[in-house]
Write a protein that binds this DNA or RNA. Structure first.
Lengths: 233, 233
DNA sequence: CGCAAACTTGATGTTGCTCAAGCTAGGTGG
DNA sequence: CCACCTAGCTTGAGCAACATCAAGTTTGCG
């Protein structure tokens, strides 16, 4: 009845090519591809961990993964969920500052860091491309700080659902939630129980429908947006 | 008895020059300086606001400012405090995503965005320099997400004090706090009252001393670090 | 000296966490 | 094909941390 995870979370890889090379000349593209390799990861597998040497940069071509940081006692903060077309692993100090782990089966294109670094001075537009990637990550991080520091549970969950909807192309009412409640909780700074209760409240209020725990229908986008900003009752 | 704000928060501008040009050739430096201008802002004045066209990039040469985002109902999240040597205003979509406002009297060097953008393809190393700036911001943002989402009030305040200490050169025990309790609260996702009470608790526990509300002494750095990670009792 | 802004402290309230128990669906083996 | 088992989700009851509301107190400035 519903699409399974592997098809649902890898919706639309641009047939034209990889995001890393978007807007670059053909010759630049082929030089970049020369230092790349495709890899696959199963759910639960790590691409790299916090503290590892950052010797690779990755672009996701399919699937979904979570990025997170841990405190010494095991508390976890998920800093982002990444899907097809997104780039990760650009570490400033040569060391990864978060762990990257597959949620759904992931395929990535891996670029050797040292080689890419050498191309940086050489390939026109590449640095600008990477700057754009990092700036977008930064923008997302700042939105998330506002959410974590100042939004109430209901607003957090509503914001999360809107993010997922936007991420899945905004077209249909129905969105697929590939991650577990515990992952959502660690992303929003809540507990599993609070996330679950908040889903139930939104359902009872008629703002969303939950045909299965992993599928959310949004009959009225506007009401969800109000819930996300506290602009509702 | 204590240094006033203007001297205390502008400790050590590299005499050699501006951070923007760090590591660049002399000729590159002069081309960058050609598109720059010095400006001053008094406490409370805005360099730019969330949503404004991003037509300038700024480097702080002295003073301190706060960056923040607002929710429609006025709740505020401060995403960072910036001091001498830090760069801001690199907006991905041509629109600023936060407001930048002076806390202490600020002097900045402003680079016209369009001009700097043109230099990007032209001046070797400049793109790399900006990439490094953005990557550091991103790293700070991710640390802050962990703090906002998963740390308790005591851990948040202790982390903040360590950040301030690091920022001020780590040398002496005494650090100067140029911002108000309300600013600290909006940075840590707390209220003014909770910040104040938490200072008092740390003082009573002997972890810090508070000779004035704006001066903190840290007799034992290690204990404060434990408090910041929840590694203490 | 008086005022305003910022800080501190206290009393009370609410949100979301903790602990604990059922529920549901998917997968496995008889 | 069905019973069982497990992992993840949901629900409930009680509680703790932090917010809110409301005074005081201190500090710097005109």
């Amino acid at each position: 009845m519903y699409a399974d995870i592997s098809t649902a979370v890898a919706p639309k890889l641009e047939t034209a090519g990889l995001a890393m090379c978007r807007g670059l000349a053909h010759q630049a593209t082929s030089r970049i591809m020369a230092v790349s390799a495709m890899q696959k990861y199963q759910p639960g597998e790590c691409l790299f961990s916090e503290g590892d040497d950052a010797d690779g940069i990755y672009e996701i071509t399919g699937g979904m993964l979570r990025l997170y940081k841990l405190l010494p006692d095991g508390r976890r903060q998920i800093t982002g969920f990444l899907g097809a077309g997104q780039v990760l692993g650009l570490a400033p100090e040569g060391t990864h500052i978060y762990t990257a782990e597959a949620i759904a089966p992931v395929t990535v294109c891996r670029y050797a860091r040292a080689a890419l670094d050498r191309l940086l001075d050489d390939v026109p537009g590449l640095a600008r491309r990477l700057l754009s990637v990092t700036s977008h990550e930064l923008r997302a991080a700042q939105d998330q700080m506002l959410l974590l520091g100042r939004k109430a549970a209901g607003e957090k969950v509503a914001s999360f659902l809107l993010l997922m909807a936007r991420h899945q192309g905004d077209g249909a009412d129905g969105i697929f939630i590939p991650m577990a409640r515990g992952d959502i909780a660690d992303y929003l700074g809540l507990t599993t129980e609070t996330v679950s209760r908040t889903f139930t409240k939104l359902k009872l209020a008629g703002v969303i429908a939950l045909p299965t725990p992993n599928h959310v229908d949004i009959p009225d986008r506007r009401r969800l947006e109000d819930a996300a900003n506290g602009t509702d009752g």
